[in-house]
Design a protein around this nucleic acid. Structure first.
Length: 542
RNA sequence: GCCCCCGUAGCUCAGUGGAUAGAGCAGAAGUUUCCUAAACUUUUGGUCGGAGGUUCGAUUCCUCUCGGGGGUACCA
């Protein structure tokens, strides 16, 4: 419908040349009485033409030469809006597109041939994923789905580190638990990993090796086994949610391939680093940042900045058109340094898009639960998924703006899961599936031959919502905002449920029944396409 | 101190500079001989944290301010 108006406005430039100077756009009015689409062009021109916007609006309408088979009427409203009302028949044309494209309806080829990479989760293998990681995992995977829907080829990447202090402590935690099993009492340090999973790993080592490991050091087998087991669990947890990375990038490989040493050398050559107090500093204050930061500690170990810069350079070299980093807000201070480092070495950081999501506040029994992997005070993502199911977890994390500090009330999620909006969407899909089973008895087929019969408010409204899918999906993907897709699908489901209540298929005259059936089937297609992008199932029965 | 995010209905949250700020839940009243009532209809509930500014028009953009969260490491 918009395309029609864009063309009409374009042609009207011959009569009102100033139309070419403003950006023409059409909004779907919030209120039904304001028509199907509205334009603010007259208001935008009012200053330029020094005329009352309502007068200009009339001149625009006169210049448009609209087809009455498409546009039923136009009106000038409020300060100078032009409202367009489409004929029911023109509105129903959308069903033809949906039936033609089916699973591909809504998908776009706008970014075909482009490659994107999204790095997300990226938790080091020190313990099970928590509910907090869940938000990152779901947002990341859904953004990847959205990008694929608009044509990108997407790599899902997981960056991790199995070296460093964190992992040493992990290995030693397992070692101490293992020694406990051999009867050696020890003071298990408070800053070690307290979780039961550490004891489980120690137990499996004890079962396999008996006391043969009592003189092993923490860095060897203990750490290796802990990492392997924990990673296995993490992948299982993600698998349960339908999240699959196709690239796992180990920070260690940057050291092994000499990338870290080379990077350090480049900074030195470019006179961007210096030594002070036994450490190597990066001159970030000369690169637009607040202050210089350490890149190699006086212990000889790099800080995270150095490998992070090296890692991003590696990704940039792979030739992506878009590189997304998805972090929790606790990392929000780290990326500007990394970007500055990349730019300083002459790499293009403009393709890197950093997305920061805010924390999930867990509330249990009316109290905020503070999460810490080390203290083993957390609710695992697995526990949550088992409690409420994959669809609820995915929908819950997708339905809110990533910048919102969301509250996750565990009791509510478990107890009142029936009231989660995801069931509202799925139920609409299941209802249509049910109708499709029923109509077979009456030998009704969806038909596009009598779409002019779809004239009631409920039918027309549903059709109009269907019209919006392409645009909403594209906008949602280009802005990395999956919650907009959720909002849209809720609107679609609501429109369908109303249609379902007031416009019966079985029992209606055949031509009308088949036109309505086409509308229902089209709705089912769009619901399913949307839910699939969210990673939520579209059940045939509930 | 400085940086990022948030503040909208009792609660959880939408809101792409536009017209009368919305949804779900919770509260009130209804709808089923009928394709699934996990639904639908009606209804109560708002100084959009506050104050300035830009604009024909601000919940939306800017400045200041108050409140909450996260950072500001030779942790990541």
């Amino acid at each position: 419908m918009k395309e029609y108006l864009y063309t009409a406005f374009k042609n009207a430039e011959k009569i009102i040349p100033e139309l070419a100077e403003i950006s023409i756009s059409f909004d779907v009015p919030k209120i039904l009485e304001h028509g199907d689409l509205s334009s603010n062009a007259a208001m935008l021109l009012s200053k330029k033409l020094k005329k009352n916007p309502r007068v200009i609006a009339q001149e625009i309408i006169d210049a448009l030469s609209l087809d009455s088979a498409v546009i039923q009427k136009t009106e000038i409203a409020g300060p100078g809006f032009i409202n367009f009302f489409f004929t029911p028949r023109a509105t129903a044309e959308i069903l033809k597109d949906i039936f033609k494209q089916v699973d591909n309806f809504g998908r776009s080829t706008k970014y075909s041939g482009k490659k994107a990479n999204i790095e997300f989760v990226s938790a080091n293998p020190t313990g099970p994923l928590t509910v907090g990681h869940g938000r990152n995992a779901i947002i990341g995977d859904t953004i990847a789905n959205l990008l694929e829907a608009i044509g990108y080829r997407v790599d899902r990447e997981y960056y991790f580190n199995n070296a460093g202090r964190q992992m040493r402590v992990l290995g030693d935690s397992v070692r101490l638990r293992y020694l406990e099993l051999l009867g050696n009492k020890n003071d298990f340090p408070a800053d070690y990993y307290q979780g039961e999973y550490i004891k489980d790993i120690a137990k499996s080592l004890f079962n396999e090796f008996g006391d043969k490991l009592k003189d092993e050091d923490a860095e060897g087998l203990f750490k290796e086994v802990a990492e392997r087991e924990i990673f296995k669990d993490i992948k299982k947890t993600l698998d349960n949610l339908g999240v699959h990375h196709n690239i796992f990038f180990n920070e260690n490989s940057l050291y092994e391939e000499g990338k870290i040493a080379a990077l350090l050398e480049s900074f030195k050559e470019k006179n961007l680093s210096y030594e002070k107090d036994g450490a190597v500093w990066l001159k970030l204050s000369e690169l637009g940042q607040e202050e210089d930061k350490v890149i190699v500690k006086n212990t000889g170990e790099p800080t995270y900045r150095l490998p992070d810069i090296a890692y991003h350079i590696e990704k940039i070299k792979r030739g992506y058109d878009l590189l997304i980093d998805l972090f929790g807000s606790d990392h929000n201070a780290t990326y500007p340094d990394v970007m500055a480092g990349i730019r300083a070495l002459g790499y293009d950081s403009s393709k890197v898009k950093v997305l920061i999501h805010q924390f999930v506040t867990i509330v249990q029994g009316g109290e905020v639960v503070k999460m810490s992997t080390r203290k083993a005070n957390f609710i695992t993502l697995d526990e949550l998924t088992e409690e409420v199911g994959k669809d609820v977890v995915r929908y819950f994390f997708n339905m809110r703006n990533i910048s919102s500090h969301m509250v996750f009330d565990l009791e509510l999620a478990k107890k009142q899961s029936d009231e989660n909006p995801v069931f509202y969407l799925q139920y609409a899909h299941a209802r249509i599936s049910s109708i499709m089973r029923e109509v077979k008895r009456e030998s009704l087929e969806p038909s596009l031959n009598n779409l002019h019969l779809l004239t009631t408010n409920h039918e027309q409204n549903l059709l109009k919502v269907l019209h919006n899918f392409n645009e909403k999906l594209l906008y949602s993907a280009e802005n990395f905002e999956a919650h907009l897709l959720c909002n849209y699908l809720e609107e679609l489901a609501a429109a369908y449920h109303r249609f379902h209540r007031f416009c019966r298929i079985l029992g209606s005259e055949k031509n009308l029944a088949e036109a309505r059936l086409a509308l229902a089937v089209a709705t089912k297609i769009v619901l399913k396409n949307g839910l699939t992008i969210l990673g939520v199932s579209a059940p045939e029965k509930m």
